[in-house]
């Protein structure tokens, strides 16, 4: 008689079965989410830190933040990486610029890689001999941070003053003669004006300047350990 009334029990069993299945699906999903997280936060941090140190404002390789000096890139080697940047003895590091390896310590196979866009700066040496036809000015075609001014004025001419963009950079009332190293602003085009008694002609002034050429490159730092 009583057996007839317990029809809800099989329903309860099915509900528990479904609930158990749902719990297990949830557990598997949670496990998968934990398992797929990036587990190399420390390697990543080391790579970011090293790339920041390499491209910092006053780093051995840079001229300013994120601008690498091409002539200093060769000085980076495994020993410099260890001594200057404080790498551990068991840390493997590779520094690449546009796919070319600059320096490598060990063999980082499973490390984390950080890529940064940097500028690589090359300084060229250019010279200019102004003709001085109708003016006493010479404008440098490219921006530079220093100019070597070589003055050899004709015998009857005295160069008393040289101005760069209106600012007096050289002055000698008795007459300037010889080679002078003049620092100018790298942020604007420089026009040199010569205050003279008498005329200047082609060859009286020779200018050597150092324009920079920058190209973008990708710096890759891989750290393992």
């Amino acid at each position: 008689m009583t057996a007839r009334a317990q029809t809800s029990l099989p329903g309860l069993g099915v509900a528990f079965l479904l609930l158990t299945a749902a719990v297990f699906v949830g557990l598997v999903a949670a496990e998968g989410a934990l398992g797929s997280t990036d587990r190399a936060a420390l390697d990543r941090q080391a790579a970011v830190g090293l790339s920041e140190r390499l491209t910092a404002d006053r780093a051995p390789l840079t001229t300013r933040t994120s601008v690498l000096n091409d002539s200093r890139l060769g000085s980076l080697d495994a020993a410099t990486l260890r001594s200057t940047y404080g790498l551990g003895p068991d840390t493997a590091v590779e520094v690449q610029l546009d796919g070319r390896t600059l320096a490598a310590v060990g063999d980082p196979r499973v490390g984390r890689t950080v890529r940064r866009v940097v500028l690589v700066e090359t300084r060229q040496r250019r010279s200019l001999t102004p003709a001085f036809t109708g003016s006493q000015r010479a404008t440098l075609p490219r921006r530079t941070d220093r100019v070597l001014v070589t003055l050899s004025p004709p015998a009857e001419t005295t160069v008393s003053e040289v101005r760069a963009d209106g600012r007096v950079v050289l002055r000698e009332p008795g007459g300037l003669d010889g080679t002078y190293d003049v620092a100018v602003s790298p942020y604007e085009t420089t026009t040199l004006r010569f205050e003279t008694t008498g005329d200047l002609d082609r060859g009286s002034v020779r200018l050597v300047y150092f324009p920079e050429r920058t190209r973008p490159a990708e710096l890759e730092v891989t750290v393992d350990g």
């Binding site: 008689m1 009334a5 317990q6 809800s8 029990l9 309860l12 528990f16």
Partner: peptide, 18 residues
């Protein structure tokens, strides 16, 4: 007479199993 107990037993059983 004990037919009326059937839902009570059923509910108690279900509740304890839960």
């Amino acid at each position: 007479d004990n037919r009326g107990l059937s839902p009570v037993v059923g509910k108690t059983l279900a509740a304890s199993i839960a």
